[in-house]
Design a protein around this nucleic acid. Structure first.
Lengths: 213, 213
DNA sequence: TCCATTTTAGTCCGAATGGGCAATAATGCT
DNA sequence: AGCATTATTGCCCATTCGGACTAAAATGGA
């Protein structure tokens, strides 16, 4: 009579991983799964499994599904800031047109490396959960504030046609994200891998060539 | 002792709705829910409820969740064709630049009216289900084939900068869709309703002004 | 009129979900 | 050495999921 092996309940002898590494593994997995399935569609068990853990541990570290979502968003903002910081420092000493080029190049590279970002925006922008409010306040507003001044300068100097800024911002950021957000579509329709360096460069070039003439 | 009202099992006396109307109600609800939650996240019960029916009826009409998805996609293509047909007829007699203007105007209006479309593309482009293959073949390929010829003519005539077509197509279509796919974000960040006629016109104008100079 | 077909709703099932909680090994403070 | 805290797992719960099946009213042809 083979009894089901009564694995003892408590903490496993699984030591060696630094404390912070567990939290980060969970947050990375959460960004991936949330971007793929949306908030409701994502399951704590899938997120935990993607990080190689049990779902109770996710709840231990982040209390709630909602709490995990907020922590994952803060993590995403930190990733973005880290990625853009250097380019932002380079750009601030450049004249407007070059500054724009530098920022677009950096942003396209960021979109290619973190397609979860744009996907999460698409997911969370539906319905009127409090999550969309959080995103608008903590992510969209600062981003757009920074872009608005630069775009107005470019219009004043005649490098881009005069136009209300908001449509322009959405045109530019969506254009920058597209081939990476839709990477699977491009792969299925063209057999191309848009995350390659050559594709990133080609996309940046096409976008800058269209906007600055 | 109030017995739970034993609603008889069978078909309710709910007559009067034309047969085809039930199917269409289900398909419209399916497009909405699929675009909001993705394939796995969407529940037949939610789709049925959105159409005012029981979930068994959805399975009666479309057998499967996968079958419903395919039927909903065909329905979406029919909606798109119906919306674009008239503009396409107008455009074919026009010179290239005007033809481009006509097509962009029509496409932006379509994106505003059917934001589900772009949202579904974002959802289904993740992972490599057979659904992304279906979409690439039945939706993306014909769309891009039609656009490619027009864009090459515009480049030959010097109206847009010379560039590989694929990046250009993704830039243009993402730019056309953005404010409507992200309608909730725009509402939360700016308090604006991008589905209004004025917003649609402003967006079209900004896009055409940037592309054709 | 009768009866087969079509269209609808209700119910049961096994699996998965978010959350609550107990058990317990590791760690670190005193 | 002893003890509180931290980090982790296993298990239980009510709810919901997709799907299979049953019950029955409406419809239309014979």
């Amino acid at each position: 009579m083979s009894e089901a092996p009564p694995r003892p309940r408590g903490r496993p002898a699984r030591n060696d991983r630094p404390v912070e590494e567990t939290r980060e593994a969970i947050l990375s997995a959460a960004l991936d799964i949330f971007s793929r399935r949306g908030f409701e569609g994502a399951s704590l068990r899938d997120i935990a499994a993607a990080a190689g853990l049990e779902h109770s541990l996710v709840r231990y570290h982040f209390t709630d599904k909602a709490g995990l979502w907020r922590a994952a968003m803060s993590h995403l903002i930190a990733l973005m800031d880290a990625h853009m910081l250097e380019s932002w420092r380079t750009a601030r000493t450049q004249p407007p047109v070059e500054r724009f080029r530098t920022m677009v190049r950096a942003y396209v590279r960021y979109c290619a490396r973190h397609p979860e970002h744009a996907r999460i925006m698409v997911h969370e922008t539906m319905g009127d959960s409090d999550r969309v409010t959080w995103i608008a306040e903590h992510i969209i507003a600062p981003q757009h504030r920074a872009l608005t001044r630069l775009l107005e300068t470019l219009m004043d100097e005649g490098h881009i046609p005069r136009s209300p800024v908001r449509p322009l911002i959405y045109i530019l950021s969506a254009a920058a994200q597209a081939p990476f957000t839709l990477a699977g579509e491009v792969r299925a329709a063209y057999g191309a891998d848009t995350s390659s360096a050559a594709e990133i460069e080609a996309h940046t070039h096409a976008l800058l060539g269209l906007v600055l003439r």
